[in-house]
């Protein structure tokens, strides 16, 4: 493939395996439900390590920051959690989807 190739969900899962085998603590975030015009479909992944490095996406960049923060917590507690994002009010620009959609994201430790 040429450089136009995007990071596919399978690339992200490979990254998760490589990071884990390199001794990093890793969490995996997955879009599990979408409503309205959500930017990334169910099954999209974001992989996060304990230093806050990440690959992939669960939205168009709108909520990744919040997901990474939650993922650090998940790595700490080793407990999976489900997050929900949507547009509620003006503050949505900070941790929400400007497109007007809603998404549910499952964040789990990879061990």
């Amino acid at each position: 493939m040429r450089s136009t190739a995007r990071h596919t969900p399978t690339d992200i899962l490979k990254t998760a395996e490589v990071w884990l085998k390199a001794g990093k603590s890793v969490a995996l975030a997955t879009v599990i439900e979408t409503w309205g015009s959500a930017p990334r479909p169910a099954g999209s992944h974001l992989v996060i390590d304990s230093d806050g490095n990440f690959e992939g996406s669960v939205s168009g960049g709108c909520v990744e920051g919040a997901v990474v923060t939650e993922a650090l917590e998940v790595i700490e507690t080793q407990k999976a959690t489900t997050l929900e994002f949507g547009v509620a009010d003006e503050t949505a620009w900070q941790v929400g989807l400007s497109c007007g959609g809603r998404i549910k994201v499952y964040v789990e430790p990879v061990v």
Binding site: T10, L13, A16, E17, L20, I32, T82, Y106, E108, V111
Partner: peptide, 28 residues
Amino acid sequence: MELSLLARLNDLTERRRAAIVVTNLSDN
């Protein structure tokens, strides 16, 4: 997700084999 499952999934992907990870959202 356990590394063994992740590694198996990635191995299948590399060999162009389809698979589904089933996650129970109640008990993980």
